[in-house]
Design a protein around this nucleic acid. Structure first.
Lengths: 132, 132
DNA sequence: CCTTCATATACCTTGACAAGCATATACTTT
DNA sequence: AAAGTATATGCTTGTCAAGGTATATGAAGG
């Protein structure tokens, strides 16, 4: 399990991470919320811990697990070059939609495309395409 | 290979995606740049295509592959709740480092921690900790 | 047409890993 | 100390995917 990507490839591990984002949890709490056998939880937690996604502290017999940011930041960093790429695509899509605007206007239900939450560029004014 | 996370878990596939971010490439070009056997490239491209990461067009005998944004945007979206989480942590780290500032100053080589490229919050003024 | 180039697919083998179950460790309460 | 609770670990098994090699498809050019 060398890379962070392999670690988050497993659905149950992603579920555990999502649980921990709100607050730290014990193994038993995770077990109950996810309805998975306790050994499974412990094993996934082990993988997550060894990869640096979580850390634990002892509270009597319980172990409280909480998130650590670094590995997920690594994933975030990996996405960076691609964000540049897809923001260009959204731009192109927008230009296209702009040209389609009064065409489609109210012929169908108004459905907007998903917007990137992280604009990597200033919005550029859409120049009307010069006639060829 | 049901989820996008499993697809990007494979290092060679991530390498292919990284290659394609600059521009579309043929199978042979990918093969050469990554130094991997052609059948391997084709198989990974198949997985990527079926998961929507890439699409291809035919250019004579070549196939040109290019990126499609959606699956990676999905990964980006999955990270959203965690960004909130770790921005809080960076804040805490900053407060800590602030307090350490004149301590470490030039005792070691100046090495800065990795900063999140996507601030999810305004920078908050660091209040000097009141004496306990 | 026949050959060459570019890419895809089929088949096989191997290794990794998750699931399931049993058991061990460790702390707590009585 | 014994019993109970919480968590970890060991072992076995089945599955699935990646690598390797060979072969198939298909287009281009002589």
């Amino acid at each position: 399990m060398d890379s962070v990507f392999e670690v988050i490839a497993e659905p149950n591990r992603r579920a555990i991470l999502s649980l921990l984002v709100s607050s730290e949890q014990s193994v038993g709490e995770i077990e109950r919320q996810l309805g998975m056998p306790q050994p499974a939880v412990s094993k996934h937690l082990r993988v997550l811990r060894e990869a640096g996604f979580v850390e634990s502290t002892v509270d009597a017999q319980r172990r409280l697990y909480r998130l650590k940011p670094e590995p997920l930041q690594e994933v975030d960093a990996w996405l960076t070059p691609f964000r540049r790429f897809w923001s260009a695509h959204v731009d192109a899509l927008e230009r296209h939609l702009d040209r389609m605007k009064d065409f489609e206007s109210r012929t169908t239900g108004t459905k907007r495309p998903v917007r990137s939450s992280i604009p990597t560029k200033k919005k550029k004014k859409t120049r009307p395409k010069p006639r060829t």
